[in-house]
Write a protein that binds this DNA or RNA. Structure first.
Lengths: 219, 219
DNA sequence: GTCTATATGAAGATAGAC
DNA sequence: GTCTATCTTCATATAGAC
């Protein structure tokens, strides 16, 4: 049974990678807002709550961000940048075989959702709350990441290494497995993030109809 | 590429089954609130917007529901009741083979998310917004539905028909595939809900390591 | 950059007439 | 059951002192 029911997600701690976290107060605000947006949703968290958790008055936030929406926009951008970066890096380190590429993609996708669950929940689940002015660039990033998986799957299908009836249905299913990891994974889970990513990569291959090597005990 | 980006979900129409929709104004309010909660989230939709969409003043809503939270509670309850009912019915019509049971479960799970996407998005995604007083019973319902799948997978593993390293990881992955369907499926999608459910049931079997009958062309 | 003070509007909810 | 009118609280955001 999933731990932490009654909460929106199981994770309790918001983390931003040092390379994404601005120095000083701006970084603190982002991390605090990330936690509140993840737990209550963008509309459900107020700037007063954010300010209180940071340890300042709400008016002072406006010295760092022009609006609440800009805070969310920055978090969404960071989340999808990190997602794209980790997938890009994983694909650089593997060959041209679509099976290898699916493993790399899914491993990176799942590991990111397990390691930064609050960032993933907010960047994906609250993106729709942004005006098109502030959200369009990040939507484009997201679409590109989906497109990468779609291209891999299509190539594998054309080369006969995957056996599926419909590309999008497989892409959506594989993406979904990873997206939901952010809601139930915590560092206390009995399997660590890398192992979850390994196992989910295998699930993805199976889903795509890739035959597995025969079991050792089976002649 | 997924249609309808920029929106929280692709569906544009809220539907409640006649057996779940109360007669008269109460039913209209539920359907209207369902659409707004699905599109903007519970916190992002106001009772004034709901009232306006129904065609009345906000004060009049209180003749039908004691609070905004009670409207959400009712929608969550309906959603999880329908989910449980459709899974229960599907399992009654199949045998004792865990493979058959997984197919029945996933088919019902996915079909429900495709046919009632707004209900699924709200019942699952906004449940956390309820106080424990109003949400506890529905949380219990949800946990039971997950438990049913967990039991099926565990039985299949014990009987040697499934080959997976970790029960929860498989259960979460299979559940996730279906949950996300609610976000991208629309009746205009090129594959209908029943076919999506069929294909996702096959994905689930593959994910669980069930060997498929050899391809006709492969001797 | 942070504060106090405040503008301005919107939120959920209630009272009481019809 | 629906309305008008209103209460009270809370929201985002700004002005201006320090």
């Amino acid at each position: 049974m999933i731990p932490g029911a009654q909460r929106r997600l199981a994770a309790t701690h918001a983390t931003l990678l040092p390379e994404h976290k601005p120095e000083g107060t701006r970084g603190v605000i982002l991390e605090v807002a990330l936690k509140l947006f993840a737990e209550r949703g963008y509309a459900g968290a107020s700037i007063r709550e954010i300010a209180e958790a940071v340890g300042m008055k709400s008016a002072s936030l406006y010295a760092h961000f022009p609006s609440k929406e800009h805070i969310l926009a920055e978090l969404c951008r960071i989340g999808h940048e990190e997602h794209r970066r980790s997938i890009h890096r994983a694909l650089l380190e593997c060959g041209a075989d679509p099976r290898e590429q699916v493993v790399a993609y899914v491993h990176a996708h799942v590991a990111m959702h397990a390691q930064f669950p609050m960032l993933a929940v907010v960047a994906n689940g609250e993106l729709h709350a942004l005006s098109s002015e502030l959200g369009a660039a990040t939507f484009e990033l997201r679409n590109q990441s989906i497109q990468v998986l779609e291209d891999i799957v299509r190539r594998g299908l054309e080369r006969g290494v995957f056996r599926i009836a419909h590309v999008w249905l497989a892409v959506a299913a594989i993406g979904a497995m990873g997206i939901r990891v952010a809601y139930w994974y915590t560092p206390e889970f009995e399997v660590d993030a890398q192992q979850v990513a390994d196992i989910y990569a295998q699930f993805a291959l199976r889903l795509l109809g890739v035959a597995e090597p025969a079991h050792p005990q089976t002649p």
